[in-house]
């Protein structure tokens, strides 16, 4: 078994290298082998995700409790279990277009839970923490120290940097203002103050998006380097250089 596992691991390295090479070929031209690999990837990823869903969720949350119940050692109260079974069966009705409508209340339940979690997440996870963090936009402690110590240049710099942060946030938010005045056949127009602020917001948003884009580009470059390095290692292995 040890030998076969080692052999399989070795094969796996070459297999991974071939898949890497074929996938990278897509950067130059879409080709049938790449398409085949793409389908293999979709299938494998789906199979893996489904198996984990069954193992980590469906079995422990549904199947095992049912078996426990049947064995006379219940781990869930019967009502909870009945609801789980009922909801699952209704959702499974979605497999056929004829019975799909039976599952709608269950998808509605999921929607309701999802909406509530989205609301909770948005408010508790982002809105409140971000507004609270605004209290630290101006570095008050440093400002006080600088101001009291007579370092007016430094204190002004702190004010400037804080103002820049605040202006960026405020103008970015103003950019999204949707309301406008209708002008007949012409394009609706926003309040001139909002528009001016939004113009500034557009500049800051572009800067922020460029920052994010650079991050993604760096990450992708890291992935490219790792893959090319892997191919180099496999080539060395094949050529007996390592």
């Amino acid at each position: 078994m040890q030998i076969s596992q080692g052999f399989l691991s070795q094969i796996g390295v070459f297999f991974a290298a071939a898949l890497t090479l074929i996938t990278l070929s897509y950067a130059f031209r879409d080709n049938p082998i790449f398409r085949a690999i793409l389908h293999l990837f979709v299938g494998v990823a789906a199979g893996y995700a489904a198996a984990i869903a069954v193992q980590d969720v469906v079995l422990p949350q549904l199947v095992y409790p049912i078996l426990d119940e049947l064995a006379g050692t219940p781990t869930l109260d019967i009502i909870d279990l009945a609801i789980r079974v009922g909801l699952t069966l209704l959702l499974l009705a979605k497999l056929s277009p004829r019975t799909a409508r039976l599952g709608s209340p269950v998808t509605a339940l999921l929607t309701g839970v999802g909406a509530a979690l989205a609301i909770g997440g948005a408010v508790q996870g982002t809105l409140i923490p971000q507004i609270s963090a605004a209290a630290g936009i101006f570095n008050v402690e440093s400002f006080q120290l600088a101001y009291q110590g007579g370092y007016y240049g430094e204190s002004l710099q702190i004010i400037f940097e804080g103002s820049l942060l605040l202006l960026a946030t405020v103008s970015t938010l103003a950019y999204f203002h949707f309301g406008a005045h209708s002008r007949g056949k012409q394009e609706p127009l926003r309040n001139i103050f909002v528009d001016a602020l939004a113009w500034l917001g557009a500049v800051f948003i572009a800067v922020a998006l460029a920052t994010l884009f650079t991050g993604v580009l760096q990450a992708a470059l890291g992935a490219l380097i790792e893959r090319v390095a892997f191919l180099r290692d496999v080539a060395n292995l094949l050529l007996g250089l390592q």
């Binding site: 971000q130 605004a134 820049l164 942060l165 999204f176 917001g201 948003i205 922020a208 920052t211």
Partner: peptide, 19 residues
């Protein structure tokens, strides 16, 4: 400085839309 403020604005905007 330049991007942090706007990122905060984008995050708040998305959270308002989500809400």
């Amino acid at each position: 400085f330049l991007s942090v403020g706007a990122l905060r604005g984008l995050l708040i905007g998305v959270s308002i839309g989500t809400l």
